[in-house]
């Protein structure tokens, strides 16, 4: 589904180029649950941003379902971004001014989903993540684990094919982290492609493939269980 060829990303400083990613070759198939690991600064987040179409400043080619992203029109790319990707962040990044319900609703609004459909989708998600009672609360009133559940609900609300998660459990303690990973596993079983970046080796065990990044290069690439 995803094909990266000779992908470089660098920043020009005054005297030299600093490569954040160098010579990345990567193919990701639909239905994989892939974990990116590596020390800080290895390029995990950079790679996730490029995969998620949030960063278009790179060299090399990125094709999605056989189409070169670069060759697409802005509108096409934007539609792809909306329909195929969901994002989960380490710091949850919920909108503080919106309730749980409204946070989950936001991506649907931008997808022009009708009001009644929105209601049923959100009801289903709230039910699934056991947050019905909390739907009118604001993010500040929730625990970190609960906020991240809302973040996941929001990410999957638009039924994306690919879920991108950058250190989704980085701010959580182990029990909450376990809960989140179990949710990922379940989504994966339902057919969602998941790409996560993490520091924690135990999180990788929920997935099907593990890639180690060091200094912007792929150091190892292995299938798990």
């Amino acid at each position: 589904m995803i094909q990266l060829t000779e992908l470089d990303k660098f920043i020009e400083s005054r005297f030299q180029r600093v490569f954040l990613l160098k010579g990345i070759h990567l193919t990701i198939n639909e239905g994989e649950f892939l974990t990116l690991m590596g020390p800080s600064g290895a390029g995990k987040s950079t790679l996730l941003n490029i995969l998620g179409l949030l960063d278009e400043d790179y060299q090399g080619t990125y094709s999605f379902l056989g189409k070169d992203i670069r060759a697409m029109k802005a509108k096409e790319r934007s539609n792809l971004h909306k329909s195929e990707f969901g994002y989960i962040f380490q710091a949850y990044h919920l909108i503080d001014e919106l309730t749980v319900y409204e946070n989950i609703e936001t991506p649907l609004l931008y997808r022009n989903v009708s009001s009644s459909d929105r209601k049923s989708i959100i009801a289903e998600l709230l039910d699934r993540f056991k947050m019905v009672a909390k739907k009118d609360l604001f993010p500040a009133q929730l625990s970190g684990g609960q906020q991240q559940l809302v973040g996941i609900a929001r990410a999957v609300a638009g039924k994306p094919r690919v879920l991108l998660a950058d250190e989704p459990t980085g701010n959580l303690h182990s029990a909450q982290a376990k809960e989140i990973m179990e949710v990922f596993q379940e989504l994966h079983r339902e057919g969602t492609t998941i790409i996560q970046a993490t520091h924690a080796r135990e999180n990788a065990d929920y997935g099907t493939r593990l890639i180690q990044l060091i200094d912007g290069r792929i150091d190892s690439d292995e299938q798990i269980a």
Binding site: Y87, H93, I95, D96, Y110
Partner: peptide
């Protein structure tokens, strides 16, 4: 900026 960034990530168009 955080709110704006998030909304963009969630698919908000500029005109929206």
């Amino acid at each position: 900026h955080k709110e704006v960034g998030l909304r963009k990530v969630m698919g908000a168009e500029r005109f929206q």
